[in-house]
């Protein structure tokens, strides 16, 4: 695990000194602050049920952009840039296991992504002590929503690492990941419409429901409910895409 830890530290440092990371953080918080403020005003004005607040913040455009765009932008350089600059050669000819490098890079992306979400806790804090609501937010839904976001983003970042390992074009890697993210969010619903009557079949319905990320969040995580099968689904997705990423790198040696 030494190599994974060394890689994690180096990659996290690179994220922290990259201007792109700070532009993402700035745009996200500027937008999110505006949206949360507007949402809270609506809740205060119409005296709405505060339990709905986490669900509402999940539906904000800033959340959507964080899920659709940011994983692709964060992971696009992980391997594509190494391949483009030639540093993949020095990396892969060092005495390292491919899996350790992949895990270290993914963990750094996941850690930085989590850091991007961290200040949003302050936004929730202002709801409790701020001038608008003086709300007493339930801990469960908030914790479950963060857990869900961590699991989902972990899977998207794992796919991003895999996409980045396939090409030396960082833009193509980002676009592949964004396309995957978009399809994951929209496809299960569209597939249900496309299948028509067939989607009423119990098993098909169950499968589509499990795959439906938006439903997982609106009906489960943001209500404080954590379904083990969903956790397994996302952890499995993380493992699957990291494995594919490792295979993609190893293929160079066994081709």
């Amino acid at each position: 695990m030494n190599v994974a830890w060394v890689t994690f530290k180096k990659e996290l440092f690179s994220y922290c000194v990259s201007p792109v990371s700070w532009v993402i953080a700035f745009v996200f918080y500027w937008w999110r602050g505006f949206e949360v403020s507007a949402t809270v005003r609506v809740f205060a004005e119409y005296r709405m049920d505060l339990d709905l607040l986490p669900t509402q913040t999940y539906g904000l455009t800033s959340t959507f952009l964080m899920v659709i765009l940011v994983p692709g932008i964060l992971t696009m350089r992980t391997f594509a840039e190494e391949r483009r600059s030639g540093s993949l050669e020095t990396l892969m000819t060092a005495p390292v296991r491919d899996g350790e490098i992949v895990f270290g890079k993914w963990a750094a992306a996941a850690a930085f992504y989590s850091l991007l979400w961290l200040p949003s806790v302050l936004l929730l804090h202002t709801l409790e002590y701020g001038p608008f609501l003086a709300a007493d937010l339930a801990f469960g839904p908030v914790f479950a929503a963060y857990l869900g976001m961590f699991l989902l983003s972990g899977m998207l970042l794992a796919f991003g690492c895999f996409a980045s390992s396939l090409t030396d074009n960082v833009l193509l890697a980002a676009l592949l990941t964004i396309l995957f993210d978009f399809l994951l969010l929209r496809m299960p619903q569209q597939l249900g419409v496309f299948l028509g009557d067939a989607s009423r079949n119990y098993y098909v319905r169950e499968l589509l429901d499990k795959l439906d990320v938006q439903r997982n969040f609106s009906e489960w995580f943001s209500r404080g409910l954590v379904d083990t099968s969903q956790v397994v689904f996302y952890l499995g997705g993380i493992g699957f895409f990291l494995y594919l990423c490792g295979i993609s790198l190893s293929a160079r040696r066994i081709a």
Binding site: V3, K10, F13, T90
Partner: peptide, 26 residues
Amino acid sequence: YLPQEVPIYPDLRVVEYLRYRAALKG
């Protein structure tokens, strides 16, 4: 191994890069 084109991690200092490589090499 010294490859023909020495790749760079432009955001690291020379000593940091070498420490990173030394750690990577165990």
